[in-house]
Design a protein around this nucleic acid. Structure first.
Lengths: 239, 239
DNA sequence: CGTGTTTTTGAGCCGTGTCAACGATAGTGG
DNA sequence: CCACTATCGTTGACACGGCTCAAAAACACG
């Protein structure tokens, strides 16, 4: 029961749950699993028979490209279900790995199908979660495509801050313990390690956003959003 | 009834339909609408109350970025539902426009909800379609990110050829009447018009793929796939 | 305190963008 | 059927953003 708390929080951040739906979620058989940093949960090519809920920590999905490069396609905070899509498309076209120490809850596909069958609301919310996932992908296409390095980086930082805030992940001073290395950020933005470093330096020297000892602090929200051309509507958060 | 034929073809290209499901699809109220090239069907910011099926022609979705640039996030061939996501996320974070002359069938969200409620198979297939959409987005993130101009372009051509083939859109000689301008391809791949032109020239001079008078012909499939690092699994086509 | 990882910086190069012009093609009206 | 026009494709010259290589500094951990 406590296991599904992050999922309930997440569902409520993107929609409304009544008592019946909440009770139904709590009937899910959730099998917890602890992950160490860099540990793979799924490999490209796998055909999983369950999906996972991130209970704590941060995960990432990425593709390995022929020349050995990595393309990170998403980051996942507690409450999210990074491989919910495997419910309807069996083949994994990417890998799923823990960024930090993490705990995930494994839920058999049959269990999810049962919940989806019994509650139109939960079906809608789970479907909705995969659609928001897709909306984020669209922004990342733009981050990697038409937005330049500075705008793309700023956009990613905006997004992560809002997503972290929506699940109550910010510190009381509004900063966020961002767990990514600059290499991982570069792999998400299609930038080299050296260049993401210089881009972050630009943001730092403009007093817009600072990362110190792994903690991200946004000093000038309006300016960060302006640089990014950021419109939060695509995250479809209620707040 | 004839209106939903492309949708049935599409559904069968990514899954199985029985007679009952086919009959259910044919009960959908489909309101056809004719579009001229460049005509907008939906604008960024809209809140549509129906989704559309592409009946003929090709559509594209794109975001307008602050500096006036465009990021194309997807192309849509007959049978696809380019704004199916609006069933569960109301706000459009991008625009939908006709590339060619096209006919779409408008289906009210209520109608889709009815079908989803009545058939678990169709719910699964429609959800699956949005998930394949997302899988394509992931590849486009890589196209715009870690893949270079040549590999990204080759990857997009591979994808389009397979998608066109899966709905019977190729000519008998295996070529495909590709309706995009080089500007539009560039907007999809995050490349300038000049550079996409040079990239296509490279493919042409290597006798890998040629676009003549708007018709794409792949001369050396293996080589094109090799350049792209293409693995078709993410399209989840049955054939 | 030592070792491995991550961040930072410099120097030089290369892929891709920009600017500009011309050529090819298709559609339009006389 | 041809001239006219608009759009699209092609090419060259040059600039610049971002990459690579390399090394040092800062940090994390045992």
């Amino acid at each position: 029961m406590a296991f599904v708390e992050p999922l309930i929080t997440k569902m409520q951040s993107i929609g409304a749950l009544d008592d019946k739906d909440r009770a139904l979620i709590e009937t899910l058989a959730v099998n917890p699993k602890r992950l160490t940093p860099q540990e793979y949960l799924l490999h490209q090519g796998d055909h999983p028979t369950n999906s996972v809920i991130v209970l704590s920590g941060v995960l990432a999905r990425f593709q390995e490209l022929p020349e050995g490069d990595r393309q990170v396609v998403s980051f996942h905070l507690p409450g999210e279900m990074p491989d919910l899509h495997s419910l309807f498309i069996g083949h994994m076209d990417h890998s799923l790995v823990a960024i930090t120490e993490a705990v995930v809850g494994q839920v058999p596909h049959d269990e999810l199908r049962r919940v989806v069958r019994e509650s139109a609301t939960l079906m809608g919310l789970l479907w909705r979660e995969t659609l928001i996932d897709a909306a984020i992908f669209r922004q990342w296409i733009a981050n990697n495509g038409r937005r330049g390095a500075l705008a793309g980086t700023a956009h990613l930082l905006c997004e992560l801050m809002l997503r972290a805030r929506s699940i109550g992940g910010l510190r009381s001073d509004g900063s966020w313990p961002m767990p990514f290395t600059q290499q991982q950020l570069g792999d998400a933005l299609g930038l080299s390690l050296v260049h993401i470093n210089r881009t972050l330096k630009t943001l730092r020297e403009a007093n817009v956003a600072v990362i110190e000892r792994g903690v991200l602090r946004v000093l000038d929200w309006d300016e960060l959003k302006r640089i990014a051309g950021f419109d939060p509507a695509y995250l479809h958060l209620k707040s």
